[in-house]
């Protein structure tokens, strides 16, 4: 099916092309920091995209999504600590463990709704956070420095910044493609329908709890992968990765970028991290500027950045 060159498609193409060309700029300008920042944006966009699946499309306001970032990161850190650095072992274990944790949390928390769901996901995430704090053999509260990055046995090499960057980029694009297919499928239609009227979807013949739990597990697994990348990017993992404020950051990225929009989490991660980087260089109290900005976007920019682009598209 041909893709119409609408502003939504144009902006998405420009942003993704910008990401694709960033290493070229970094090499030409001799600016390695921008590549490091770009990698972090891609990783956080991946985590936000996973949250968007359940929050944006499924209406499940998980306030503990950063727990999977920590689970993925700690699997890499602990396995590396014990000398297991092969990515072919580390990454599947991290993804499967994140999925298993999501299955456990989801099976219990999805029985609740609204504020209770928010609180129970927050509670589980804080429990996992304190498990991290209690891992004294692995640095406890101070965190764990990675002995070595995950090793694919040659290519791609995560020690090579452009290669690592492109790996993150490819994984993000693959995740976005997966989300697009998922959301457009019957599974996605049921999830989205249940968001607006769960009892009705149930009464039509769909055990919505199973559908929502499946989405919750997929989101946890993808976020676990983001945790793997984040730990490798920082060469470090600590309980702070899964603190509830980090879950709040992910929600901010999704809301700011546009809930229930494919590219929303990418715009959100890009805006939040770019603003954080630029404002924090101006003042130590950069959040005083960022806070009101966020309030304005929530009040006047319904649908976030992706919503603004969509409205512009409708006006044309």
């Amino acid at each position: 099916m041909a893709i119409k060159p609408t502003p939504t498609v144009a902006v998405a193409t420009i942003v993704l092309a910008g990401f694709a060309l960033l290493p070229v700029y970094a090499v030409l300008a001799g600016d390695s920091f921008v590549l490091s920042l770009g990698t972090r944006i891609l990783v956080m966009a991946l985590a936000a995209a996973s949250l968007n699946l359940i929050l944006g499309y499924g209406g499940m306001v998980s306030f503990g999504h950063a727990a999977y970032l920590g689970v993925g990161g700690y699997v890499v850190g602990i396995m590396a600590y014990h000398g297991v650095t092969s990515a072919w072992v580390q990454w599947p274990v991290a993804i499967l463990l994140s999925a298993a944790v999501a299955l456990f949390i989801g099976a219990l928390s999805l029985r609740t709704r609204g504020l209770y769901f928010i609180m129970i996901t927050l509670a589980f995430a804080q429990m996992i956070y304190y498990v991290g704090v209690g891992l004294y053999d692995y640095g406890g509260d101070d965190g764990l420095t990675l002995n070595a990055r995950s090793d694919f046995g040659g290519f791609p090499s995560l020690d090579d910044r452009p290669q690592f960057y492109y790996l993150c980029f490819i994984l993000l694009v693959a995740a976005l493609y997966l989300m697009k297919r998922l959301v457009g499928s019957r599974f996605g239609q049921v999830i989205r329908g249940a968001k607006s009227n769960d009892p009705r979807m149930h009464a039509i013949g769909f055990p919505t709890m199973r559908y929502r739990l499946t989405a919750f597990v997929i989101a946890g697994a993808v976020c676990g992968l983001a945790g793997v990348l984040l730990a490798n990017q920082a060469d470090f993992v600590s309980p702070a990765t899964m603190h509830w404020t980090r879950s709040g950051d992910l929600i901010v990225m999704v809301v700011l970028g546009g809930m229930g929009s494919l590219m929303g989490p990418v715009y959100g991660a890009l805006t939040v991290l770019a603003l954080e980087e630029s404002l924090s260089s101006l003042t130590h109290y950069w959040k005083i500027i960022f806070g009101p900005f966020l309030v304005l976007v929530v009040l006047f920019g319904k649908g976030g950045i992706a919503g603004l682009i969509a409205r512009w598209e409708r006006r044309k």
Partner: peptide, 23 residues
């Protein structure tokens, strides 16, 4: 459960329509 009843072959058009507005 209601989803099994629907699967068994009873279709309901509920009061207030309750279509999915976001689909």
């Amino acid at each position: 459960p209601s989803y099994r009843i629907a699967q068994a072959g009873i279709g309901l058009v509920p009061e207030g329509r309750q279509i999915f507005p976001n689909l």
